[in-house]
Write a protein that binds this DNA or RNA. Structure first.
Lengths: 254, 254
DNA sequence: CTTCGTCGGTTCACTGGATGAACCATTGGT
DNA sequence: ACCAATGGTTCATCCAGTGAACCGACGAAG
């Protein structure tokens, strides 16, 4: 509506982010705004240190680290991170498996922290990875704590299969969410990546609303069904601790 | 100069980032722009999903995770990350200590990846942390590979001491940079955090320009002088591999 | 070698979107 | 009851943002 130049600028910024080394005409097409305007936006954003011309390829634009710095410093995730790091550390040491901390972003789960296993066989989810909710244990855990409206909306949308094992049937997913609620933790067997299994538990923020989730992941050869309960309960205990720190159960309410 | 509304919007965004749950008047003062304008910016940014009103405290504004997602997805760091993860993984397994990947941002080093040690005694630098260059091994390593102009500029600025051991004398720092160049790695003994020692090596990008750095860190009780050389050389080897992957030495030139 | 299509980047007259002083309603401290 | 903050609204003024048309350069195709 208002401040359309700002809207354009941000859309340009996001377009740059999506198309990494992006050319002017390319961006102009993407955002559907005249080149002159796009260029002005890029110049302005460059002055502010958010984008820069790629040194490798003249004329191509890239995001700078500054954008990342600003976003990560202030992200609402940082509150969660502060509350979570201690307990997560303990959980990682207990289970010896990789532990993730994720927060929701528009239907995806965003990995904002990771504590690694000491095992040689280990998988990586780079910081900033976006995982579809239905294909990850963190996502399903989050959905199990999210309000019905959000869940319905999400399940109504297109659900991509990342592996042959990814569950994309809304009815089945709904049943899995119910199971997750009853059990206290979600289980994802190779739905995100072949050979990887993970266990997720939701985190609650102030007022008891879903704020994110944590997970324990590892190769399916190590994270076997016999361990699900042990890991699930360990993660649930950790999540409870974090949620409490976030003020999920404080009488102060919201 | 131009597109001042965009400038204002971004400045508001950064102000929100810096003051976490920030109030309207507070931001107005910070950015030195009338409340009405700030509010319009906030509303626009909210429409775009970059900021939101805190649920906990009405009227307070916070960054959303979406900002983080956009920035981290497109960050120029992602190119480095892709090139670095493999070699870093090997380095972590070799040394068994915590390994960091950092990129520069306006005089700070930004931690964009971390691979954890398996030791119980371990320190955390949350992902997204900003470390002053002169107080970190990653920073000094970066400076050792950066061009003179940048180094002079940085050393001319205010240099904060984070611990009693932090070196803040420009002349001493300059000597340390020379040493780092000769040695191939930087050493930081408790200059960032008491009890933590770390070894850093710069990464070079296309054209041989400094692009970031990696480090090995751990408690000073484990990272003792006797190990400096071993770790330093291991890190240097890893850095060389990453720099090569980044095209630092490709004949293709800049 | 010429032509064509694309690229990144520039120019400039027009106008509608952005601006900010002054305003209101609430809240909390004394 | 008062005062000084807060978050949020209004609206006349005007200048910043817009975008069609332009340029020179490059690469592929004829």
């Amino acid at each position: 509506m208002s401040t359309q130049s700002v809207v354009t600028a941000i859309r340009v910024l996001e377009a740059v982010s999506d198309n990494q080394p992006a050319g002017l005409s390319e961006l102009s097409r993407e955002v559907d705004v005249p080149k002159a305007t796009v260029l002005r936006m890029l110049r302005t954003l460059a002055e502010l240190g958010w984008v820069a011309q790629s040194e490798a390829q003249a004329g191509k634009w890239v995001l700078t680290n500054h954008a990342f710095a600003v976003a990560s410093r202030g992200s609402s995730g940082s509150v969660i991170r502060d509350a979570a790091m201690g307990p997560l550390n303990a959980l990682q040491l207990d289970t010896t498996e990789t532990v993730h901390l994720a927060v929701p972003d528009r239907g995806y789960m965003l990995i904002i922290e990771r504590l690694d296993t000491q095992h040689v066989l280990r998988a990586f989810l780079p910081l900033g990875s976006r995982l579809p909710m239905h294909a990850s244990s963190t996502g399903m855990a989050y959905l199990s704590a999210a309000d019905e409206v959000f869940v319905n909306e999400y399940l109504a949308g297109p659900l991509e299969a990342l592996t042959p094992q990814t569950v994309v049937d809304p009815a089945v997913l709904r049943a899995m969410i119910v199971d997750t609620r009853a059990r206290g933790y979600s289980i994802n067997e190779q739905g995100l990546s072949t050979g990887i299994t993970s266990i997720g538990v939701p985190l609650l923020g102030p007022g008891g609303v879903a704020a994110g989730s944590i997970s324990i992941s590892g190769p399916s050869s190590r994270i076997v069904p016999a361990k699900y309960q042990e890991y699930g309960e360990a993660a649930a205990g950790t999540a409870l601790e974090i949620s409490r720190a976030l003020g999920a159960f404080s009488t102060k309410g919201y």
